[in-house]
Design a binder for these strands. Structure first.
Length: 429
RNA sequence: GCCCGGGUGGUGUAGACCGGACUAUCAUACGGGACUGUCACUCCCGUGACUCGGGUUCAAAUCCCGGCCCGGGCGCCA
């Protein structure tokens, strides 16, 4: 692009100037001798006003040939307008069509007629042209950026661990098997083992932003089979309270960033984001079960909602930590505390967004717990090695990026917070 | 894995319970026409659909069975 392109949100400083803007044709209103066109770029919309008497007939005809979602570049004069809704319009002097768009469109990005979610996902690239749908991901990017920024300042190293693994981590959840040359392998359900190994390898503090895979045949608004896990693990902790305290500060940073940097997007979504208290309250699972009026070893989805209602009303927090889960509900590496463990979940607005805890760092104890589960320690040798040769007390947690985005924005389906979701039946796009 | 619900033009819907004038509603989109201040522009004309297969019936978009596809709940999890 030889001409300097201006984004729509910068036009208010260019009144009276000649500028070039580029983007997609969002809407066209043709009144005969005057045409109005809404041009959309990544920052917003601007009206282009084409007056038959004031433009070159050739340019006027060019505008007549446009269709919705054509990609165009318009050069013209920016003018303040008390008629145009945004207060700004451009009177064009040149138009270049950069790409045509076929019609009819498979869905309407201007959302005059709202498409079914399934239709939207089938045509996700067009769906994401709607700024409200896009805004979710702008905010998600801000959250993840805030995650990285905070952890970098805290001395964490970003790491990348294998997603093709020889064995499952936690048991419990189902793994996707894959053929790895002559061997059977799996898609990683979690970076758990590897992040611990790197803590013990001497990095002490690590984090990873990466995909994890769960082969569960769940079919709900809060589950997908591939999601992005915001994982951290760090050493030299006293116990799980250190971990919760870190997560508390981390979330505070992430949410504050969204609040200050994503005002336009939040407005677009009409979202009210939750305040992160300076101390997120914590209650034990036993207490939570009592509040929910439930029995057993974990809360049901309805129970999680009840506990969150309680937290909001009585503890003035939309976030709440649930602590002291029993060993039988937790993976073998969870640090025991009697029959319980030094582990926790974090609920936000009725949904679990984090699981974390202190891990076992003693080799002997870990082997014992593996055996207790009927597993063979030999199968975990690659993992156990670091525990043999000096593993500091440590722990960490994982935040589901899509779930966090969903809950912060009050979205009804996790797929809204996933560009191209993979669920029980969807593999494309 | 178990349990509910649903599939009508490109998109979104009405009709279905109680089968019959459904030659299938409306909006939007699309094609054509009129229009110089629209902002869901307006107005006129036009194109365009009953998920598939079987059954019941004089008659099926409508009732029944099966397939396919989709949505949702539970379990499990982030």
């Amino acid at each position: 692009m030889t001409l300097m392109r201006i984004l729509t949100n910068e036009l208010k400083d260019k009144i009276g100037h000649q500028v070039t803007v580029a983007g997609w044709v969002h809407e066209l209103r043709d009144l005969g001798g005057i045409k109005f066109l809404l041009l959309r770029d990544r920052k917003g919309l601007v009206q282009v006003t084409v007056l038959k008497k004031k433009v070159d007939p050739e340019i006027f005809d060019q505008f007549s040939g446009l269709g919705r979602e054509y990609v165009i570049q318009v050069t013209g004069t920016v003018s303040q307008s008390n008629i145009a809704q945004a207060g700004i319009e451009i009177f064009p002097t040149a138009l270049e069509i950069l790409a045509e768009a076929q019609s009819p469109l498979p869905l309407d990005p201007s959302q005059k007629v709202r498409a079914d979610f399934d239709t939207r996902l089938n045509h996700r690239v067009l769906d994401l042209r709607s700024h409200n749908h896009r805004s979710v991901f702008v905010i998600q990017a801000c959250l993840v950026s805030g995650f990285r920024e905070f952890l970098e300042k805290e001395g964490f190293y970003e790491v990348h661990t294998p997603k093709i693994v020889a064995t499952g981590t936690e048991g419990g959840t189902e793994l996707f098997p894959i053929q790895y040359f002559e061997n059977k392998a799996f898609l990683a359900q979690s970076p758990q083992f590897y992040k611990q190994m790197l803590v013990g390898a001497g990095f002490e503090r690590v984090y990873e932003v990466g995909p994890v895979y769960r082969a569960e045949e769940h079919n709900t608004v809060r589950h997908i089979n591939e999601y992005t896990s915001l994982d951290i693990e760090f050493g030299f902790i006293t116990d799980d309270r250190d971990i919760r305290a870190l997560e508390n500060r981390l979330l505070s940073h992430m949410v504050t960033r969204v609040q200050t940097e994503c005002e336009a997007e939040l407005a677009e979504l009409q979202a009210t984001i939750p305040a992160v208290p300076s101390t997120i309250p914590d209650i034990t699972l036993a207490e939570a079960l009592e509040i929910a009026g439930e029995e057993g070893y974990d809360l049901s989805p309805a129970g999680e909602k009840l506990v969150c209602d309680y937290s909001k009303e009585s503890l003035d927090s939309e976030f709440i930590f649930i602590t002291a889960y029993p060993q039988k509900k937790r993976p073998m590496y969870a640090m025991p505390d009697g029959e319980l463990t030094k582990s926790f979940d974090l609920l936000l607005r009725g949904l679990e967004v984090t699981t974390g805890g202190q891990r076992i760092h003693q080799y002997g104890l870990l082997v014992e717990k593996i055996k207790e589960r009927g597993l063979d320690p030999d199968g975990f040798e690659f993992y156990l090695e670091v525990f043999k040769y000096g593993m500091p007390p440590h722990g960490g947690f994982a935040i589901g990026a899509e779930r966090l985005t969903m809950q912060i924005l009050g979205l009804e389906n996790i797929r809204e917070a996933t560009f191209f979701p993979r669920d029980r039946t969807r593999l494309v796009p």
